[in-house]
Simulated scan of single mutants.
Amino acid sequence: MDKKYPRLGRRTVKLSEGVEQAIHSVAMLAQLSEEGVLSAGELAEYHGVKTSYLLKHLQALSGAGILATLPGPKGGYRLARTAAKITLLDIVLAVEGPQPAFRCLEIRQRGPNPLPVKPTRPCEINAAMLRAEKAYRAELQRVTIADILKDVAAGDDGSIAARGCAFLAIHERRQGA
């Protein structure tokens, strides 16, 4: 059983691995030169993930206007807007969709002793979960990719930056070059 939430066990709500991969990919793309791009394969290689799985999320990010896709043999992905204008919520919604994490199925109306009539008040549990979701989304909306990069740089002894720079020096493709 999960020690932090022993009553919930393994049924805790989690965001998909795609959210983590998408955030890291957007952060990596934020470090490209103005004319630079990276392919899905290169992003997958850097993060040690499957290209096919990451590609699905990169396409969702493109569809949400977070990434720009450039076709051709020197094509790839880059940010469609600045890192300061991309929030964690933007990325989560692009990958996971806009639906709330908690979905009330009105189980009050099921079982051997259901409510006799359709409830006139909203489910208090659903209302509490939606308030929590609103607070969670507000925090994600507050944090940008630029904020994340600034925090990483503040705590970096130089090794994180060196790793990324070395990879980009080899793999960044420059449009028009």
Rank of each mutant, 00 (worst) to 15 (best):
P114L: 04
K85Y: 05
G65W: 09
R108A: 09
M129A: 11
Q141K: 15
T51I: 08
K74S: 15
E106M: 13
P98G: 14
L89Q: 11
K50Y: 03
Y53W: 06
A146H: 05
K56P: 02
T144V: 13
L89G: 00
L38Y: 03
S33G: 12
L88D: 08
S62R: 12
M129N: 07
A146G: 04
C104A: 00
A44M: 04
L43G: 05
H57K: 14
R103V: 15
T120H: 13
A127C: 07
T144C: 08
E106F: 02
E20V: 14
I148Y: 03
G41K: 14
G72I: 06
C123L: 06
V117L: 09
G41H: 06
G97A: 09
R108D: 12
D90Y: 10
I125G: 05
V117I: 05
A101Q: 13
I107E: 10
A40I: 04
L55T: 05
V92R: 04
I86P: 06
V95I: 14
V37S: 05
Y46Q: 06
L43E: 00
Y136W: 13
A44H: 04
A135K: 11
R137T: 05
L32D: 04
L43N: 01
L61W: 09
P114E: 01
C104W: 06
V143S: 08
L130H: 11
R78M: 09
T69C: 00
G97R: 06
A101K: 09
E45C: 07
L15D: 12
E35I: 12
A22F: 02
V92L: 12
R81L: 07
L32R: 02
T69P: 03
H47Q: 15
G76R: 03
A44S: 03
